[in-house]
Design a protein around this nucleic acid. Sequence first.
DNA 1: TGATTGGTTAGCCATATGCCTAAGTTCCAC
DNA 2: GTGGAACTTAGGCATATGGCTAACCAATCA
Lengths: 113, 113
Amino acid sequence: MANQSLELDALFRSLADPTRRAILARLAHGPASVTELAEPFDMALPSFMGHLKKLEDGGLIDTTKEGRVRTCTLRTGALAPARDWMTAQRLLWEGRLDRLEEYLATLTEGPKP
Amino acid sequence: MANQSLELDALFRSLADPTRRAILARLAHGPASVTELAEPFDMALPSFMGHLKKLEDGGLIDTTKEGRVRTCTLRTGALAPARDWMTAQRLLWEGRLDRLEEYLATLTEGPKP
DNA sequence: TGATTGGTTAGCCATATGCCTAAGTTCCAC
DNA sequence: GTGGAACTTAGGCATATGGCTAACCAATCA
């Protein structure tokens, strides 16, 4: 549970920045190199690389180096824990406890990474 | 758009802390006073109050004072923009552009706060 | 009316964050 | 072999964050 809390900390912190959200939104269209990703931003490259590192350490993206080009790829399902937490709260708020129970049942059945 | 970006910054930053997430999860069960909310936490009251202020400034909760008791209430739909952004990314990732279009149509029809 | 309760304000500290520049390394095209 | 491209590392700076204690204030109770 504490581990899940740390994971959610990192996930939501990763999303609490417009640059990183823009990176994720771009990668949703497909993999891209660092240079491609950085091009729309008026930001020093080492600063931009810092954001990529944050996303990689947070488990949101994978990066691979081929020659001098580093390619970034969105990690499938990486946002699921954050989305699941928000969905759980919404179901509680709306008072649909029976739906919450069904929903939690689907969580325990799913595979864990 | 920039305004939406700032709103998402504040929303995700509010969620990037275990104490604030626990507050929201508790309030999902119904309103509570500051003292009730703070009781499970081993934290100085001014520090805890700081978290409540963050949540209120971020539009996630409302607070009202009656006599010396301040009661906190979850604001309905407050997490919707964050959830919507995550849903939009997921639909992109899964390549279901037609579903994305349908989804975006529902957004533009909905009332804006 | 004094004591207690439920916050509120102010100031401080350690750490994290997001940006910068400068310099460097690895790879590749010419 | 060399210059340029694509990163990578190091150090610095300003601001934000999350916690603390101390003192205070407003409301209520005995």
